[in-house]
């Protein structure tokens, strides 16, 4: 609900802002903020896979799972799978609500699918990070501490304002932020239309990050298993 509230508020309070020179050509701030709401919505629940794993480690259930004669990798991937399904449903709902309130996706239905897939990949990336932390610390509190990190990453990106209208060190941070690298091509698909280059960037960036974080989680799990 919070990302939707934020989108509704920003759409009605930034009506004059979209007229600023340098702001992308949009009919309404609603079109501009759609990718931000999508990313925000899926990201807030993305650490759940890590939190659940940490809870299982804390209460000893994970040790019982480890003792069972099964492969270790599905223990991680299974939880990520749950997060992926939730993120995909959230993504479809967010886009449907935005369309209902008048948002337009210039890239068409195919671009909407890219939006959802990019969001799902981002969830895997954040979920993998949460699982790695859960394995290293075994603490729900430590995994929950990633929430401010996710929150800050979104606000210190191009999610709510174009980076060309920012200035100073904040602009440099926003431009170097991987969230910006995901949001900018997704936004172009919404505002400008279909482009294979944008599709590539929108999918490859979160894919690379998710492969990296899930690999790190698997390595952490293997180390934990070999040390115990």
């Amino acid at each position: 609900m919070f990302p939707l509230l934020l989108a509704a508020v920003y759409t009605h309070q930034f009506t004059r802002v979209i007229l600023l020179p340098g702001f992308p050509a949009v009919d309404s701030f609603l079109d501009f903020v759609l990718p931000a709401s999508l990313v925000q919505s899926v990201s807030f629940g993305a650490t759940e896979a890590g939190t659940e794993l940490a809870r299982d480690i804390e209460n000893g259930f994970f040790d019982r799972l480890r003792a069972s004669p099964c492969m270790r990798l599905p223990l991680l991937l299974g939880r990520l799978g749950g997060a992926v399904v939730v993120a995909a449903v959230k993504g479809v709902l967010i886009i449907a609500i935005f369309l209902l309130f008048g948002a337009e996706i210039a890239g068409g239905p195919a671009a909407a699918v890219v939006l959802v897939v990019a969001a799902v990949l981002l969830v895997i990336a954040i979920g993998g990070l949460g699982q790695m932390l859960a394995i290293f610390t075994g603490s729900q509190e430590a995994v929950n501490a990633t929430f401010p990190l996710v929150f800050t990453s979104i606000f210190m990106s191009s999610a709510f304002f174009p980076t060309n209208l920012m200035s100073g060190w904040f602009r440099e941070v926003a431009e170097a932020n991987p969230v910006t690298w995901i949001i900018d091509p997704v936004r172009r698909l919404i505002l400008e239309g279909w482009s294979w280059a944008d599709v590539g960037q929108a999918l490859v960036v979160p894919l690379v990050i998710s492969v990296a974080t899930v690999t790190m989680a698997v390595v952490a799990l293997n180390r934990k298993l070999s040390s115990s």
Partner: peptide, 24 residues
């Protein structure tokens, strides 16, 4: 810490992201 950190994140994020509002 959370009580102190969150508003600090807000002031840095909002002033950084929405700095050009002053041009309106």
């Amino acid at each position: 810490m959370p009580v102190l950190l969150m508003p600090l994140i807000f002031v840095v994020s909002f002033t950084g992201a929405f700095g050009s509002l002053t041009r309106v």
